[in-house]
Every structure is written in C-alpha cells, then in structure tokens.
Amino acid sequence: MTYLRLLAIAFVLCAAAPVSAQGTSVAFGAIQQDTSAPVEVTADELAVDQASGAATFTGNVVIGQGEMRLSAPRVLVIYSQGQAGIERLEATGGVTLVSGPDAAEGQRADYNVADGVIVMSGDVLLAQGQSALSADRMTVNLDDGTARMQGRVKTILQTGNN
C-alpha cells in the first residue's frame, strides 16, 4: 500500500461522521500553476514514434512543471500537430500528483497542457493535510488551483469533539 492510502485509512479509522456525495469542489495546490512553464520529464526508458508524433516514457517516470510533480510507471506524451510543444500527457499504471501541500493518487491521469486541466480517474484519493477525500474521478484546473471530485465522493468531517 502506498503512503497516501495508509494515511487515508488511518484518517478514516480515527474520524467520525462519514459523508458521501456525488460531486464536490475543493482547492488544489498552494498556488496557481503556470501552465506555460517548461515540462521536465525523467524516466528509465524512452520510445519515440516519429509517425504519430508521440513519445512513451516508462519506468519511474517523474514529470515536473513549476511546483507540480506527477509520477507514474508509464507516460505517453503527445506533441501538438504543426506546432512546437506538448498537447497532452497520458499517465497510467498508478499515478501520484503533488502540488504544494496537496497530493492525489489514482490509476490514470490525463493532462491537457493547453487547457491546464488534469483529469485523474480510478480510485482517486486526495490528501490535504489531515483531510482526505476519495472519488472515482478528480478534475484539476491548474489555472485557478481548484479541483472537482466526482463519482461517489467520500470524506470524513471532524466534529469539534475530536
């Protein structure tokens, strides 16, 4: 189990008054992300497909852009057609996204660089300090630092007695 999952389990076991909802908005990251900042990628291996204009990074992939870090076993980078630059990133195989004090994990993350939007899916868990939320899907808007949790959202609300 990952650190975030263990943290969330401990949080759930120690808290009271569970609440579930279908969708909710939360803040994500300490600051707004500069989506025009360079994207740095490190990995164990790289395969480039000249015909499709895509690159596949595998093995301990870490992507950095400003204060944001995304890690995954595999990331497909799709370059813009006719323009220099990255159109989108598709991270799979268990993804961790960290921005400031917030961290999220899920099975997949799709990052549309031009729009500044990351969509995480597959058992998403968001940890913010002592709070944790889980959902089927999380959409992060990097331009304004917000996230929307959707699909069987669950969190624990602390009462004043704890």
Score class of each variant (00 low, 15 high):
Leu133Lys: 13
Gly85Gln: 05
Gln81Ser: 15
Lys154His: 13
Gly85Ser: 06
Thr42Ile: 13
Ala10Pro: 00
Val119Ile: 10
Pro18Phe: 00
Gln128Pro: 15
Asn112Asp: 10
Ala91Ser: 02
Ile63Lys: 07
Glu105Pro: 02
Thr146Gln: 04
Lys154Tyr: 07
Pro101Ser: 11
Leu6His: 05
Ser131Met: 05
Val117Gln: 04
Gln32Thr: 08
Thr146Lys: 08
Gly122Val: 04
Val117Thr: 01
Gly100Tyr: 04
Gly116Asp: 07
Thr159Glu: 10
Arg148Leu: 00
Val62Glu: 12
Asn162Asp: 13
Ala16Asn: 15
Ala37Glu: 10
Glu90Gln: 14
Met138Ser: 07
Arg5Gln: 12
Arg5Lys: 12
Glu105Asn: 08
Arg69Val: 10
Gln107Lys: 10
Ala37Arg: 11
Asp144Glu: 03
Pro73Trp: 09
Glu105Val: 09
Ile118Gln: 08
Gly82His: 08
Ile9Ser: 04
Thr56Ser: 03
Ser99Tyr: 07
Gln32Gly: 05
Asn60His: 09
Gln107Tyr: 05
Tyr3Arg: 13
Asn162Thr: 12
Ser131Ile: 01
Gln32Pro: 01
Ala127His: 09
Ala54Gly: 07
Asp110His: 10
Ile118Glu: 14
Ser99Lys: 07
Leu7Ala: 15
Met120Phe: 02
Val48Cys: 02
Gln81Met: 10
Thr58Asp: 01
Phe11His: 12
Gln65Arg: 06
Arg69Leu: 14
Gly106Asp: 07
Val153Tyr: 09
Gly93Ser: 03
Asp144Arg: 02
Asn162Ala: 03
Ala8Ser: 10
Phe28Ile: 02
Ser80Asp: 06
Leu133Tyr: 15
Phe11Val: 08
Ile63Arg: 07
Thr24Lys: 14
Leu89Trp: 11
Val61Glu: 00
Arg88Leu: 03
Arg148Trp: 02
Phe28Asn: 03
Tyr111Cys: 02
Val62Asn: 09
Leu13Arg: 03
Gln65Trp: 05
Ser99Pro: 00
Met149Val: 03
Ala114Asn: 14
Ala16Gly: 14
Arg88Lys: 11
Tyr79Ile: 00
Asp115Tyr: 00
Gly85Asn: 06
Val12Ser: 09
